[in-house]
């Protein structure tokens, strides 16, 4: 599979301050990749390096097959960027804003492209109004349209749903999913971990340096044991004691009318546990898995990193 974004030990220093430290990522075509990290983690600096707006202090990177630092013009032509702030011209209409950027991106049929994206993002009816009269959400959608005008193969989105109401945020998320279906490679910087969980094929937790990189599901597995919860009509300690006798069970606790059981492979072991409980006369109401959120993973990684820094 073609790798659309590759960074090889890229670092960025501003004087004594290291903003990005030896970042290694490789993103194949068609992947939605999330870059997660707290404020000041270096996410925006990374995006800026990948759009050739700032140069890495060391290391190498390529975007859409073009090398950062040497093919900057080509990179800018093939990458669409949504910056942290929408950055639209308030005194120009939505249509004029897009027409201006279309001319800079050398879009062949600007009118068609402008109409296409304004319609897709629900702004066509207001195309002639000054952007200064738009809500933050509308400006954000317009900025997304701008990032797509030249049909870039790679999209770098910095906080795409920031400041949007739930309906608009969902619209943008659905739109990103559509763009993924079209085979575009998308890198998203976000604080919205639920959004990253839903949208991203893989995520990188990042705080100046890479802390973890994998699919959200794998990150959960790496950090947390899997736990199932049996809701019973009457949970007794005796049930827990008999369950603890199994070697594969790591722990079992009674909480109200629930049995919370930690085990490595619930899909394989659950039938055995169900049989045991039924034989002992337990009435099982339903069974579920305790699912750790990406937020749990993120906080775990970031807090550990902060503790390590303090210890050092």
């Amino acid at each position: 599979m073609t790798e659309m974004i590759v960074t090889n030990n890229i670092s960025k220093k501003f004087g004594e301050l290291t903003a990005v430290d030896r970042l290694n990522i490789s993103i194949p075509q068609g992947e939605v990749f999330g870059l997660l990290g707290p404020n000041g983690a270096g996410k925006t600096t990374t995006l800026r390096m990948l759009t050739s707006l700032i140069a890495p202090t060391s290391g190498e990177a390529s975007v859409a097959g073009y090398k950062v630092g040497t093919d900057d013009y080509e990179i800018r032509k093939n990458v669409g960027i949504l910056t942290e702030s929408p950055g639209m011209y308030d005194r120009l209409s939505a249509e004029r804003n897009l027409a201006f950027f279309a001319s800079l991106y050398e879009v062949e049929d600007p009118d068609t492209q402008i109409k296409k994206y304004l319609q897709m993002l629900g702004l066509w009816q207001r195309r002639r109004e000054e952007v200064g009269t738009f809500s933050k959400g509308m400006k954000q959608k317009l900025a997304i349209a701008r990032a797509l005008l030249h049909e870039p193969r790679v999209l770098l989105l910095d906080e795409p749903t920031s400041g949007l109401d739930p309906v608009a945020a969902k619209m943008v998320r659905d739109f990103i999913s559509e763009l993924k279906e079209e085979g575009r490679t998308i890198m998203i910087c976000t604080h919205n971990l639920d959004e990253a969980d839903r949208l991203c094929d893989r995520v990188a937790v990042f705080q100046t340096e890479l802390l973890a990189l994998d699919t959200p599901a794998n990150l959960r597995r790496q950090l947390y044991e899997r736990s199932v919860v049996f809701h019973l009509s009457d949970a007794k300690e005796t049930y827990a004691e008999s369950i603890r006798k199994y070697d594969f069970v790591r722990s079992c606790q009674v909480l109200d009318n629930k049995l919370v059981i930690s085990l490595p492979d619930p899909e394989e072991r659950n039938p055995e546990l169900v049989n045991l409980l039924v034989k002992q006369g337990a009435e099982i109401q339903f069974i579920g898995e305790i699912r750790h959120s990406l937020e749990d993973v993120y906080l775990h990684l970031i807090n550990n990193n902060i503790k390590e820094e303090i210890n050092e």
Binding site: L53, E74, R76, V79, I81, T83, G87, Y105, E106
Partner: peptide, 14 residues
């Protein structure tokens, strides 16, 4: 002040 420069600089304009 209007933060429009970054998207502008990210375009293929010298």
């Amino acid at each position: 002040s209007t933060k429009t420069l970054e998207p502008l600089l990210a375009t293929p304009i010298t």
